[in-house]
């Protein structure tokens, strides 16, 4: 019978905590860049101009259909050779996950924008607004409210995807756990605790998302059923 011993894990709690902070840092950075980029991609795809819509569509589809780990390796190992810059694991991760999540956010934005009734466009035009004005003042504010649940879901997915940075030696929670496991020879306890931390943090976000979703569903403004 295996004897569990969590003391070596506790002794390295500060490393795990640092890892969690780094995980949140990558997630936050990717969100900060991914959401605006996703909006830009969605607007380009919906613009009706082929030279804008087509490249945007390609970026969205490409990053949605290739595995994120392949993308990360490409940005970490291949891109520095191509443009001769020093790429840190954090930069590669931030770049990969910003673009990757932007591709998914773009589809969320697009779904939200398309779900707004045509009458809203017509009314905005009747009031003398140009299309960009109606998009900014009338359509987007309503669409964003409907998209919130899908957004939260994507953000949670993103946080889970960031564990991949451990494979390029960025000191996120999973990487730290691996290090501690090798140092203390206690992989069972260390990986169990790491999984527990991920579970707790992500479940917390999931519950918040569900709460918000229910609130929005009551006011009938959600696109998620």
């Amino acid at each position: 019978m295996y004897r569990w011993d969590f003391l070596p894990v506790l002794a390295n709690a500060d490393l795990l905590l640092q890892g969690l902070v780094n995980t949140l840092a990558v997630t936050g950075t990717a969100l900060a860049f991914g959401i605006p980029l996703g909006l830009a991609l969605a607007l380009a795809r919906l613009s009706g101009r082929r030279w804008l819509a087509w490249p945007a569509g390609f970026v969205i589809e490409f990053f949605r259909t290739t595995p994120p780990l392949v993308q990360l390796f490409w940005f970490f190992f291949a891109l520095p050779v191509l443009i001769r810059v020093e790429m840190t694991p954090f930069m590669a991760a931030a770049l990969t996950f910003s673009i990757q999540s932007a591709a998914f956010f773009a589809e969320v934005f697009r779904g939200g924008i398309v779900s707004i009734e045509r009458g809203q466009w017509e009314a905005a035009r009747a009031l003398g607004m140009t299309p960009p004005q109606s998009m900014r003042r009338i359509i987007l504010p309503q669409a964003v409210k409907r998209m919130i649940p899908a957004f939260m879901e994507r953000a949670i997915e993103l946080m889970k995807t960031t564990t991949l940075v451990a494979t390029v030696s960025y000191a996120d929670l999973l990487f730290q756990a691996n290090e501690i496991a090798q140092k203390t020879f206690r992989p069972l306890e260390v990986f169990t605790v790491a999984a527990g931390i991920y579970f707790t943090v992500i479940l917390l976000f999931s519950l918040m998302a569900r709460q918000l979703e229910r609130r929005l569903a009551v006011s009938g403004e959600s696109t998620v059923h």
Binding site: M159, K160, L174, N178, A181, P187, F191, A195
Partner: peptide
């Protein structure tokens, strides 16, 4: 369902590879 949906799949794979052999 809640456990596996709310933990990253890479953590699960590494758990099965490094931690499970102990058990």
């Amino acid at each position: 369902v809640e456990f596996f949906r709310n933990t990253p799949v890479l953590v699960q794979i590494l758990w099965f590879y490094f931690a499970l052999p102990m058990l």
